[in-house]
Structure formats: structure tokens, C-alpha cells
Design a protein around this nucleic acid. Structure first.
Lengths: 157, 157
DNA sequence: TACATATGGGACCGCTGCGGTGCTCTTTGC
DNA sequence: GCAAAGAGCACCGCAGCGGTCCCATATGTA
């Protein structure tokens, strides 16, 4: 599956929706617009505010707005704000202590880190501005480095 | 997090280890070699066998071996065998019914599918042969398609 | 044939974290 | 002072993860 959580998905939807607006909007408005349940919307936006993705205004006529231009916020940042640092496996998570008991036998750790970096780069490459529009052209294309590309291609056919 | 499960991680480690061997090995041997608990090793290998990643031999002197050459099996296949089809979000999962209640308001679905495809491609590009060796050179590099690359770069700086 | 050695296929269980809800406190505009 | 809004926290049901165990079945060997 390699799935992000539903809350994170909501976060991306909400942030993308905010990218299409100019001023701050209340939780009620945003929940109505995106069809995300109101309490859940509030929870997600709180997390996004804590992560610096959106800025909040308290009090009457308050609400949430993007903390930066839509083009300056990418999907990796939104995911990080809601789920913590992106790490495909535990041993690619830099924030955890390095005590992987399998490290001696593992031998695949370095490769996981590279895969993780590739995924992270893919998510970094997509901004909220990209998500906000119903893009028709592919957002990302992958290319292998020369030597490995040949090896991979040959190995698969 | 965007994390794969521990069991899947074990599966990759076990499959990568099998890639360095020639003949079939028993669960006991593989568990000893990789420091993965024996019952868990058995569980993971059963799933891999079901998914066609490894072939099993029952009875005395039986065990598990890769079902194909290490270069012909990629990480995406291993993950799929253990976690089902790779889908970053629920609505990118082709196997589920299309009844996404937010589809009308969502507008980001197409973009998620592209991100999902990029991640999938990244995982497909790495074979067990790649994982088996402690590679020093980067396995994958990402490049954006021309137009979007410029847009993304400009948008971030 | 009997037995030891394997995997196959379940059932089972504790626990974490997800998804969701509700409450109270604080801030702010009118 | 009051109403509107977010901040912060606590809480809950539950699915799925990680891990273990048991029994059925297959197979080489004495």
C-alpha cells in the first residue's frame, strides 16, 4: 500500500483548496467547501498551523490562510506537518536513534535511504499551486541515472 | 511518515538476502542470517511465496528460493506481495470501487495518481540485485519534465 | 513403513495509532 | 460584555500491525 493517512490526504485537499483562495476562511467554510467533516477539518488545520503551512487568525472573523504562496509550499511539507518526517522505513528516519538491531546483518539500509530520497524528491517537486489546478500534463517523470537505467531496463525485459 | 510496514521491510531484507544465495534455504537458516525472528520470517516468506516472489520446496531439505533472477524482481513487486497494490491514497487504489464521496469537490485526484505513479516507478526501478549489493552510486535520480521543472524550481526560490 | 524435517494455512492476541468527536480555554471584533 | 473563532487536550472505537502458536500436509531418509 505505502499509503499516507486519511488525515494527511485531507490536509492536502484543504491546503490545495486554500491555494485557490485569497483571504482567510473559517473552519466551517472550508469544511463545507471540501466536504470534510468539520471537527476533522479543525484538527487537520490545527496541525497544519503548527507545522507552519497555514497561518491562523483567532477571534471573530478569524480563520486560516496559507502561510506562503501556493507555489512555495510543496506536498512533502504538508505530509511532514501531519505525519512527521518522511521515512519509508524506520531506519531511514533520521530523527529516531540509530539503534537498528539489524544494522549489522541488514546491508540494505543505504539503498532504502536512496529510495526514500527519491520518494521525497518526487513529493517535493509538486507544489500546492500544481495540486490546485486540475493539471493534464504529467507533473513528474522519473529517470534513472545512466548506468543503472540500462541495468534496470535490461533486467526487466 | 509514508512508511511501509515492518513486515514488508523484513520481506525486502529476506528477499535481498536470498538474492545473494543460490539454492533454497530453510526458514531457520534465513532467520539466523537476517536476525529476523523465526516465526515472523516464516510468515513473511509464506506471503512472498503466495505472491510469486519466492518458490518453496516442502518436506525434508526443503526451503525457499527466489522464483526468478534477482535482477528480474523489483521492490515494487515485493511490496505488492506483502501489502497489496501500491496506492498512496485510497482514491489511487484501482482495486477499490470508485465511490469516493469527495470526488466532486476534490479536484486533486488526478494529481495524486501522478504522484503515485512516480513513487511506483521509483520502486520499480530498484531490483533485488541492486538491493543485494551495498551500492555506493545513487540508485535513482529524479528529474522533472522540462516545463514543470522550471516552474517548480522558480516557485521554490 | 516410520520418522524427522519442512512448508501451508489458519487462529489468536496485545497494542499502537488512525479517524473522529467533544469539551473547555483563550483571543478578538463589535 | 457578548459572540465568533481558533488552541489545546482528552477521549473512544476500531482496524491493522507485529508477533506467536498449532496442526495439517508434503517429502527425503533410515
Amino acid at each position: 500500500m505505502l499509503r499516507i493517512s486519511k488525515l494527511t490526504d485531507y490536509g492536502v485537499v484543504l491546503a490545495s483548496h486554500l491555494a485557490t483562495l485569497d483571504g482567510p476562511r473559517s473552519v466551517r467554510e472550508l469544511a463545507d467547501d471540501t466536504a470534510v467533516p468539520q471537527p476533522t477539518t479543525a484538527k487537520v488545520l490545527k496541525a497544519l498551523a503548527k507545522g507552519g503551512i497555514v497561518s491562523s487568525t483567532r477571534g471573530a472573523h478569524g480563520g486560516y490562510a496559507l502561510a506562503a504562496a501556493p507555489a512555495d509550499i510543496n506536498i512533502a511539507q504538508v505530509i511532514a506537518a501531519l505525519e512527521g518526517p518522511i521515512a519509508v522505513t524506520e531506519c531511514t528516519d533520521d530523527t529516531s536513534d540509530d539503534s537498528c538491531s539489524h544494522e549489522d546483518h541488514c546491508g540494505v539500509r543505504g539503498n532504502w535511504q536512496r529510495i526514500n530520497a527519491a520518494v521525497h524528491t518526487a513529493l517535493e517537486a509538486v507544489s500546492l499551486a500544481d495540486m490546485a489546478q486540475r493539471a493534464e500534463a504529467p507533473l513528474i517523470t522519473l529517470s534513472l541515472s545512466a548506468a543503472d537505467a540500462d541495468a534496470a531496463r535490461l533486467s526487466r525485459h
